[in-house]
Each structure stands twice: as structure tokens, then as C-alpha cells.
Amino acid sequence: MFRSCSAWFSQSVGRELCDFWVAEGGVITNHHDADYLFSSDASCPDTQRIHESRDYIEGKATVFHSCYLSSNASSEMKQTVLLGHFILPPACLQEEIKRKIGSFIWEQMNNSQIEQLEIL
């Protein structure tokens, strides 16, 4: 389902999600060339660097939470997962945002979906 798409993965993302990306036809590349930037932790130094980069300031480097891929991997949610719900904002903004809109979707995702992925 990710054929001809390229992605960069933060070191914070588990190996099984990178494998899932490749198994679904995706390519892994550097953060500058990648169509998709995935991280599971905005405070991870490699993700922080993206959030301080010129590309990010210019609006060309939105980071998404890797739970987007976990959701795609769980069959009952396939084709209905909205990428737009998995924006991973810079770590220093998350508390402020949460005060206004509540918890992020990846915080609500339960462990069973993650466990399910590990079985795949």
C-alpha cells in the first residue's frame, strides 16, 4: 500500500514498523528526500533536529507519529486511517496543545493494537 513512497524513520521508531513500511512497498531514505517523516518521540534528538530545520520552518517537513503505521497494520482500520490525525508537533508545544484539545490520538491508542502488530 506504500508502493513508490519514501520515508525517514526516527531512531525512536520500532524496527517492526520500519519492516512493515518496506513489506508494503515503501522505501527508506534520508529525511531530506523522504515523502514521509515518522517518529514516535518528538523529544528524540533526530526528531528535534527536524523540528528546528529550515524545511520545517518553511512548512515542508511535517512529522507524523509512527502510530499511523500501526493503525494501518491493524486490519479493521485499514483504508480509513487519517494521516492528518497523526501530526507529531515539537515536544515543547505538546503540553500547550493538549491543554486546549485533550490528548493526542496516539496516546489514546491502546496496547492491543501495538501487540497485534508484533504478531504480524
Binding site: 514521509y36 517537513a61 512529522v63 507524523f64 483504508q79 494521516l83 492528518g84
Partner: peptide, 11 residues
Amino acid sequence: TVGLSLNSKNF
């Protein structure tokens, strides 16, 4: 927007 029309570069 579902599907792969959106990505990190254009979102």
C-alpha cells in the same frame, strides 16, 4: 483526506 495524497512535504 485519506489515502496517500498527503505527505510530510505538502501537509
